[in-house]
């Protein structure tokens, strides 16, 4: 699968852009938190597209955001 680029994203409609990002993010997130992958991906898709692209290129950034999202999600579910 070829890397997702900002120009590829820009060529797609806004809703499609999130879909493209989600399809790339999901497998990476699934490898970290298989049970929560769908919800974590949904949370991360609320982030700006440019930052999501950066996360796809930077595993460390993605990992940090995923851990952040898991903490938020667990706090939310504990309520």
């Amino acid at each position: 699968q070829e890397p997702l680029t900002s120009s590829m994203l820009a060529a797609a409609p806004p809703q499609e852009q999130k879909q493209l990002l989600g399809e790339r993010l999901y497998p990476l997130i699934h490898s970290m938190h298989s049970a929560l992958a769908g919800k974590i991906t949904g949370m991360l898709l609320e982030i700006d597209n440019s930052e999501l692209l950066h996360m796809l290129e930077s595993p460390e950034s993605l990992h940090a955001k995923v851990e952040e999202a898991v903490a938020v999600l667990q706090a939310h579910q504990a309520k």
């Binding site: 809703q15 999130k18 879909q19 989600g22 919800k39 949904g42 898709l45 609320e46 939310h76």
Partner: peptide, 26 residues
């Protein structure tokens, strides 16, 4: 008393068109 956040966050499923926050409104 506040039930508005029960469905948060929207869940992403591969291969399923993403509706994101739009699907909160019926």
């Amino acid at each position: 008393s506040n039930g508005s956040s029960i469905s948060w966050p929207p869940e992403f499923h591969p291969g399923v068109p993403w509706k994101g926050l739009q699907n909160i409104d019926p």
